[in-house]
Design a protein around this nucleic acid. Sequence first.
RNA 1: GGAGUUAUAGCUCAGUUGGCUAGAGCGCAGCAUUGACAUUGCUGAGGUCGGAGGUUCGACUCCUCCUAACUCCACCA
Length: 909
Amino acid sequence: MKEIEKAYEAVKYEDAIYKKWEKSGAFKAKINKSKEPFVISMPPPNATGTLHLGHATMLALEDIMIRHKRMQGIPSLWLPGTDHAAIATQSVVEKKLQEKGIKNPRADLGRKKLLSEIKEFVKDSKDTIRNQIRKMGASCDWEKEKYTLDDDLNHAVNTFFGRLYKDGLIYQGDRIVNWDPNMQTTVADDELEYKEEKAKFYYFKYGPVVIGTARPETKFSDKVIVVNPKDKRYKHLHGKEFDVEWINGKIHAKVIADPSVDPAMGTGSMTITPSHSLVDFELAGKYKLEKEQIIDFHGNLLPVAGEFSGMHIAEAREKIVAKLKKKGLLVKIEENYMHNIAVNYRGKGVVEPQIMKQWFVDVNKKVIDWKGKKSSIKEVMQDVIRSGMVKIVPKKFDKIYFSYVDNLRDWCLSRQIWWGHQIPIWYKISEEDKKIWKKHSESSSYLLQSLGIKILDTRFGDKEPKNGVWIRDPDTLDTWFSSALWTFSTLGWPKHTVDFKYFHPTSVLETGYDIIFFWVAKMILASTYCLRSDGLPEEKCIPFKTVYLHGLIRDINGQKMSKSKPETCIDPLDMIAKYGTDAVRLSLIVGNTPGNDMRLYEEKIAGYRNFVNKIWNASRFALLNIADADIDTSEIHKKAKSRADKWILTNLNRLIKEVDKDINNYRFSDAATKIYDFAWLKYCDWYLETTKGEHINPPVLLYVLKEILKLLHPFTPFVTEAIWSHLNSENMLINEAWPIANAKLNFAKESGEMEMVHEIITTIRSVRSEKKVPPSQKIDAVIYAGVWTKTLEDKKEPIIRMGRLNTLSIHTEGPKINNAVWKYVGGMDLYLPVENLVDIEKEKEHLLKALKITGDKIATIKTKLSNKNFLEKAPKDVVEKEKKAFADLEEELRILNGKISEIKAISKK
RNA sequence: GGAGUUAUAGCUCAGUUGGCUAGAGCGCAGCAUUGACAUUGCUGAGGUCGGAGGUUCGACUCCUCCUAACUCCACCA
């Protein structure tokens, strides 16, 4: 025992402990059909990413839940995995290839080669994130690890797609999509970011009206003017048609009135460009107008632009304006027009709305047999939350969820990149078209469109259909399409494996609130649809029973941490190296309440490192003071001797109850804080300090320490396991049984703090009156403290070790130290020095202040107690409490008055 | 434009269905320290719970309005 270091150095222990856990099989979930399991599917981090604070928080929270349940003997599965993060990964690899000199990786390498490049890259970097998950101490079942592009998960994806297709829920449609000309792919609405930008706003004469626009380059073939029907300025024009002079000659235009136009915006009249604006596209659909593409997929103008054809839009804009000016059609230019432009949040490319053929999921068609009624995807998604089948913690996110689902649009599934699950759709084409197609390296679906390839037939399938020439849709599926299946595809679905039957639905989904739309909603969509069509009862079709949404971690200024601001950005791995995983975990848990953001700063982590060290030292102390670590701690209630023993056991018992309640209610911060307080303030500062010396009761000392370690283990797994190995060489703490509150350990009556306090105060008072000394200013502190003294064998002078105060000592015999007179005060075997007087004036001031406060309180409480309404309407226990408080206060007042008269008597002398 | 969240000590945050004198950590000031621990111990200062109303015997807690900050959604032709 003696060789334990004075300070706990996390780095020395953590990796070895993790290996030991993993090797022992402690993380493996064991099926036990007589018990209901506890299951978490780990939100899969990007396979090529590195651990950030969001991951660290997620891992810490989930590990707490899993370790707690595991110690309770509940079969617990935490299934880890990684995500292929399609767009992010492909763009990283493409960039790397470009750095190597391959200018256009897709065209130059072709699909097969590029994919194998990406595969290599993922393979190499996957271990990074895996090891970082281990660094956090995550006790997940690595044997069940999955990757969203695994073959069996691909099979699940295709099965999901196939069923939707068969049910007519998947359709291909011309839709306006967010096209990123840089990345050459569509971007989901969810993935857009808006950036404010200053631009010029142009006014042009267009026939009888003046129109305003920021984008003249899209206006070549505008032939429809739209005005608000209530706008009096344009009433005479409704339904009229006429020829107007425009960029490249005359255009036959007509006027439509629609309420979507804002009369206050610009001139109140506009022309529409259905191909490159969502609003215009919807208007065109409403009035059945033609939609002509103006800009191609690289951002260049098409032949409709005449002399500007082939020019990039950025370059063309001013030239078009110049031409219109020459024609006398330019009215004015507003220079400082602020507007938002949409950019892809990955890569930041400016998005150009385009009409393209894309695959969509219909969320409104009623095909799901749900609770005896044909329902749409949207309706099922609403019902699952509304009926409470899935609970969201905190509840405020219900509203946010509904505002999203109620306005849910059809889900655009296709992405024009190669890394991901390729769409399992085949097109029958002619031999000749196939030759053309091959020349273009099977690029992307928009080329199918623009090359004019004729599709003769369309089929769903994993493999190429027979008879005829078939090509597969070159696009891939939205990453979230595979993530949506995560809770059950990882358990073997579409097969109903033993694991699937036992472990699904999962218990808790724990993640940041920022991906509630991306992921949480899509998981509900996918699991209810897939599993219901398997014929499972509704309650088995949800992906999880509870969603716990943690707050996001922000920097000290409340800003999002981003790599662009390294000075405020905290890297969890650096912090782990510096302060240890346990400290990092605590700093992420304490103060983190569901759905509320939390600021993190290094001092906070350092604070928890100090706590970890405190536990280490308390244990060290215990071990140094116990001859034999194998002390029998059974039947501990019979071994509690002193009042202090009983007090700490009673408090421990209370703590266990509260911690269980808190963890079950997802109040992890509260649970951690309570254990922290108990361990540091009650066990170390109070119990250890009080019993130090000859009053150590080894069984209780050890028992309480062990219980603290168990309670703390889910929060700080490493240090607790490290200490445990000194206490118990046979079993690892990770496998120990979780503490259970024991009624026998409730000594509240014998050991209640207040009772003890009163007893000691009484004794002290009697001591004082005997010796006629003024009350010590620090007397009250005595109650919490307890100090010991010890004579060193090798020193002549008696030594007083002052743990907390100068005023108290514990000794079996009335000591005579430093010429002080010590008096036995009983109760806890305390000896009190009756000299060491204090500053009388200060004491007087202090007492008078206390007297005033107490007097005020008594007045308040008196009013309350004389209030009839209070006595009649307030709950009985509250009234009782008030009465007791009143009695206590009066007693306090008496004591204070006694002290004051004492002081006055002394100061007179 | 629509919706939501937050506002409590110098800083970061707790405060569970309204009910004992509103709490913690950090920071600050003072004191202490030879056998677990300076990654320590004790003591102290510091709050009209954003503002104004209302409901109630009683409001940090519930309701309304106002102010400020943040977030999400929509979107600017």
